[in-house]
Nucleic acid binder design. Structure first.
Length: 416
RNA sequence: GUGGGCGUAGCUCAGACAGGUAGAGCACCAGGUUGUGGCCCUGGUGGCCGCGGGUUCAAGUCCCGUCGCUCACCCCA
């Protein structure tokens, strides 16, 4: 064991049969995206560091201490993407995708990288399914995006979960709220050490503190909702009313804040039970000012990210297991093996999945292998069958066997 | 970055307190059936006991160091 090269910290191999579950989630997401008019984007994993510094916010934890940043051979500072929205927006602006008609609906999925201390549900390379809708500030779009998220989660049979929503307001609302909150906090004693620091650096974060004592103090803290300007309040109310109309159960969570600076107005998060401390399986919100922040035009937008690794942890183990119609060819002796190999290729041309063993193993061993590979049927080919021109076809579940003419075998198997 | 738990076979773990020939279950291979899987029985393959140093006649076991994994804080998907 010593000296073997291992995967680096926080990174992991995803192996079969687990990969089948991942495919099931991704297929479900793709279907739902198509239903809502979204198209896929495939983006680089590496971007200029500046892109993230400007979009996510230089003072956020992500940018200040969690990014994989390195100089390339020309000395440019590059970063492995810690999230996808910045890249999506960069690509949209660079390729002028914002110019088309209607709301631009895009999704992308793949690995993200953050240099954090790994724990349950948190990896340094993790995977997100990312949704972005650009070009409208209509509350209907907020509702539609959340409906889409819930549709995906429903399709993958996510169990007990809660949808938390809040409105962060526009920059003006946020400014007033921060002033009000700072004033409130400055009058309070007994905040935890972290919150004393956050009170100055990022007062919104104090709302998120998990300390029981801080929560008690915050009970009568000002809430964002009371600071929303008329426009933001109307927008928020409309979103909530639409969610209700379509039967989406949500919880207003006045303390919900997001870890990235670019969010405004609607913010939401889905938390699931059974995940330990890292229980957010999806999160998102509106980011109306981000395009301009990146030097683009005014481009209101909203999106979400699903944490695929976490989601998979709470989904049923049997997810993505389809019924098996695999055929196993058990051949005895060189001549039969040669014949079986040809038959195998014929079957595959017909779209019938099949396997055989290339070793000189006993029929017993081959039957055992067929069983463990989950074959629905096993074809037995030996000298006896080659002589008579008829193979033995065994149905594994019942043990029933019949003789089938070799020339008819491909047709019969294709019809099973 | 901080704290707790844990590193022994491919996997799950005994063995450590009281130092003395490295074990079990599962998995894998083979046999019990000269051509028939699952259940059962028998046998077999497989381990620098994370790594380095120390104590000792002798270390998986005691001591020191180190690396890794894991959970939690923090942060977030």
């Amino acid at each position: 064991m010593a000296g073997k090269i291992k995967a680096i910290r926080g990174m992991r191999d995803i192996l079969p049969p687990e990969t089948g579950r991942w495919q099931a989630v991704e297929n479900a997401a793709r279907e739902a995206f198509a239903l809502y008019g979204y198209r896929e984007l495939r983006l680089p994993l590496i971007e200029r560091t500046e892109l993230f510094a400007r979009s996510i916010g230089a003072d956020t934890d992500i940018v200040s201490k969690e990014m994989y940043t390195f100089p390339d051979r020309h000395g440019d500072s590059l970063t492995l993407r810690p999230e996808a929205t910045a890249s999506v927006l960069r690509a949209v602006l660079e390729n002028r995708l914002d110019q088309g008609a209607g709301v631009k609906k895009l999704y992308t999925l793949g690995p993200m990288f953050r240099y954090e201390r790994p724990q349950k549900g948190r990896y340094r390379q993790f995977h997100q399914i990312n949704c972005e809708a650009l070009g409208s500030d209509a509350p209907e779009l907020d509702a539609e995006v959340i409906l889409l998220l819930m549709e995906i989660l429903k399709r993958v049979q996510l169990g007990t979960s809660r949808l938390l929503v809040n409105s962060l307001g526009c920059p003006e609302c946020q400014k007033k709220f921060k002033e009000g909150l700072s004033l409130f906090l400055s009058q309070k004693q007994g905040l935890c050490e972290d919150c004393l620091r956050r009170r100055v650096t990022n007062p919104l974060r104090v709302l998120d503190c998990k300390s029981v004592h801080c929560k008690e103090i915050l009970k009568d803290a000002p809430v964002l909702k009371d600071y929303l300007c008329p426009d933001c309040a109307v927008h928020y109310a409309r979103v909530l009313s639409l969610l209700s109309r379509f039967g989406v159960t949500y919880e207003e969570q006045p303390r919900l804040v997001r870890g990235l600076d670019y969010y405004s107005r609607t913010a939401f998060e889905v938390v699931a039970v059974g995940l330990g401390a890292q229980d957010a399986v999806a999160g998102g919100g509106r980011y109306n000012g981000l395009a301009q922040e990146l030097g683009g035009p005014e481009l209101p937008a909203i999106g979400f990210a699903i944490g695929e690794d976490r989601l998979l942890e709470v989904l049923p183990p049997e997810l993505g297991q389809e019924k098996n119609r695999k055929i196993f060819l058990a051949a005895l002796g060189p001549a039969a093996r040669d014949q079986a190999f040809s038959l195998l290729q014929t079957l595959r041309r017909e779209g019938v999945p099949g396997e055989m063993d290339f070793g000189e193993r006993s029929l017993k061993a081959q039957m055992s292998l067929a069983d463990r590979l989950g074959a629905a049927y096993t074809v037995i080919l030996g000298d006896r069958e080659l002589e008579t021109g008829k193979a033995t076809l065994r149905r594994m579940a019942t043990g029933d066997q019949q003789e089938v003419s070799l020339s008819l075998l491909p047709m019969v198997l294709a019809g099973l």
